[in-house]
Design a protein around this nucleic acid. Structure first.
Lengths: 182, 182
DNA sequence: ATAATTACCGAACAATATATTCAGTTTCGT
DNA sequence: ACGAAACTGAATATATTGTTCGGTAATTAT
């Protein structure tokens, strides 16, 4: 890809991420994005059709990065190295603790529901594949879709709580909390 | 309050609620609301400053109604009649099953995050006052704010799951599900 | 190196939505 | 029946979106 195109794309993502951490998606205008990214109006629209497709692209960028990397990591690790039930989730918390790709800015900001929906969607797929970790006598009676939704939601809410309370706990502690309530 | 004012307010709430069940908050225009409510433009703005404050007022209306009524109901019932740990939450599910005030329309529609935030806010207060129902050895180690957030979130997500899957289960069954995962 | 391509600029523009104003009409409470 | 309060609807200013276009600069290919 042309270096200019790459740089512009980066500038847009960067400006947008920064704005998302300050205010909610709906109240961000394209005008603000191009001012913040310091690019021309037409340039923005040559990269993204709408503000929504920018959000979509940003989510793809972030989640494909984290989840795909994790997926591959686990194809190796899960089979050969780690069989502890919390590995996948602990890994996610560790990624978040390092604040890869400024993902926490998006989670901590107010109202970034579109982002959270994407996050939960990807997470649900992960949880579905990890359901064997959560099986117990007590839970056998519950509908699977209910359980999957519950676990994904709990994960997202745990992160939200963690971030909104200043990330005082270590990733390991939060992982413990997460499993304690499941 | 003047009958006209009351009727207009009702018409606005009604039109808005209906619209919220069809599309998301952001994509509803004031123009649509006044057309649907069949009132003049200036009339709308004499009642509400913005679309946001209409949403706020609607939430206050609904939640004060449900939660306050429940609060009082429980001041009586809780002490004299029901001491089953699930009473308060079962009551809420029953209210929702009856679809009081079309509250479910707001929960089932996409993206009605502002509404869900209000719902969770009020719910958190309720949960805080009911924390004694959830105490156990296992949970004693966890921070209280984490637990309160977890329980409120689980309740909201349970409702969301229930509604989005067609409300096939009875209120009693969903209440069981809710307590099973806590 | 130079030519062709690709990307960016930024101002202008149409379309849409918001929020206010105001003069004129209807409805309410007493 | 009367004054106050509420509604009407058209006009207006402002803001945002998404498009267009002629001109400029950076990149790539030959």
């Amino acid at each position: 890809m042309d270096r200019r195109k790459r740089k512009t794309r980066e500038a847009i993502f960067s400006a947008f991420t920064e704005l998302l951490s300050e205010k909610n998606f709906e109240s961000i205008t394209v005008g603000e994005i191009i001012d913040s990214a310091d690019i021309g109006r037409a340039t923005f629209y040559s990269h993204f059709e709408t503000k929504d497709s920018l959000m979509e692209a940003l989510c793809e960028e972030l989640f494909c990065h984290i989840f795909d990397a994790m997926g591959k990591e686990n194809e190796h690790k899960h089979i050969f190295e780690c069989d502890a039930p919390d590995s996948v989730f602990l890994h996610l918390f560790l990624h978040l603790q390092k604040n890869d790709n400024n993902i926490l800015k998006l989670l901590s900001g107010r109202n970034n529901d579109l982002f959270l929906r994407y996050f939960k969607k990807h997470l649900t797929e992960l949880v579905s594949s990890q359901m064997h970790l959560f099986e117990s006598e007590k839970k056998k009676k519950l509908p699977e879709s209910f359980l999957i939704n519950h676990i994904s939601s709990t994960f997202v809410e745990t992160i939200r709580w963690w971030v909104e309370n200043g990330k005082k706990e270590t990733a390991e502690t939060v992982t413990e909390y997460f499993f304690s309530v499941l």
